[in-house]
Simulated scan of single mutants.
Amino acid sequence: MLPTGALSISEVSPRVARAWALAAGLAALLWTIIVVSGWTDGFDRALMIRAEALRSAQPWLVRPAWLVTRAGDGEARVVFALLVGLALWRAGKGGRALWLWLSVGSGLLLVPLLKMLIDRPRPDLVVHLDKVSNASYPSGHMAGATILGMSLLLVLPRGPVRLALLIYMLLVGLSRVLMGVHWPSDVMGGFLVGACWALALYGLLGTIERWTTTRVSRASR
């Protein structure tokens, strides 16, 4: 069970969260336009070549990168969200558990739709060290890790977990470039999309908590 002190909700108000969500959404839209227009091609190719040189010079990095990228898989994110959600539920925070599951679950539907709409090809400069089956932009691993990480930062904002979540998001993004399956701009796009989605859904937390409290009150009568 999670300690009560760790369940204190972030001091970020829904109004502030909506403002940040709007800013992240506009940044994601602008970045997408820049990427689709080809303005990041030189930047992307230069960094991909550097990533290839790094993994050739330091082959031991490939295995840790593969493990990190597995931690960013949709299945891993769902399992982690389920476990944290169950802990929240047992601690009497059912509304936050439902909100966390909604955030992570809806992200699994959002990113494939964006990939289909933008349909950017995967990197063609280096050998792929991971299996891929859909388009490149935005990075689904990065978007999903950001949605999970930011959602947990809002629900579990105190203690060393904050730093661990930030490191998790950063490493997942870096691993996708090192594995050769995403352009760096895909990772940035995934971060912006994930941040926008998590912050936008934060506004629903109060409503879900009130609904959950009402349901529990009625069931206890």
Results as ranks from 00 to 15, higher is better:
Ser175Phe: 10
Asp186Arg: 03
Ser151Glu: 13
Leu178Phe: 03
Leu154Ile: 06
Arg176Val: 00
Met169Asp: 05
Arg158Ala: 06
Trp183Lys: 02
Ser151Asp: 14
Trp183Asp: 02
Arg162Leu: 12
Val177Phe: 01
Arg176Met: 01
Leu153Pro: 08
Gly190Arg: 02
Gly173Val: 02
Val187Glu: 05
Gly189Gln: 04
Thr146Ala: 13
Leu165Thr: 04
Pro184Cys: 07
Met150Glu: 09
Thr146Arg: 10
Ala145Trp: 04
Thr146Ser: 08
Ser185Ile: 09
Trp183Thr: 02
Leu152Phe: 14
Leu174Tyr: 04
Met169Thr: 12
Ile167Asp: 04
Pro157Ile: 15
Val161Ala: 15
Leu156Asn: 09
Met188Ala: 14
Leu174Val: 12
Pro184Val: 04
Gly189Arg: 12
Pro184Thr: 01
Leu171Glu: 02
Met169Gly: 09
Tyr168Leu: 08
Val161Cys: 13
Leu166Val: 14
Tyr168Phe: 06
Ile147Asn: 05
Val161Asp: 10
Ile147Glu: 13
Leu165Val: 08
Ser151Tyr: 01
Tyr168Ile: 05
Leu174Arg: 03
Leu174Gly: 09
Ser185Phe: 06
Ser185Gly: 03
Leu178Cys: 06
Val187Gln: 09
Ile167Met: 09
Leu166Lys: 05
Leu165Phe: 05
Pro157Met: 12
Ser151Gln: 12
Val161Ser: 15
Leu154Lys: 08
Met179Thr: 02
Pro184His: 07
Leu153Thr: 05
Met150Cys: 13
Leu165Lys: 07
Arg176Asn: 02
Thr146Leu: 04
Leu166Ser: 07
Ser175Trp: 01
Met188Val: 15
Ala145Thr: 00
Leu178His: 00
Val187Thr: 01
Gly180Arg: 02
Met179Tyr: 01
Leu178Tyr: 03
Leu153Ser: 13
Gly159Ala: 03
Leu170Glu: 04
Leu152Ser: 14
Val177Pro: 03
Ile147Met: 11
Asp186Phe: 01
Ser175Lys: 00
Phe191Asn: 10
Gly173Trp: 09
Leu148Ala: 09
Leu163Pro: 14
Leu154Thr: 06
Leu153Trp: 06
Arg162His: 01
Val187Leu: 10
Leu170Trp: 10
Gly173Met: 03
Gly149Thr: 13
Leu165Ala: 03
Leu174Ile: 10
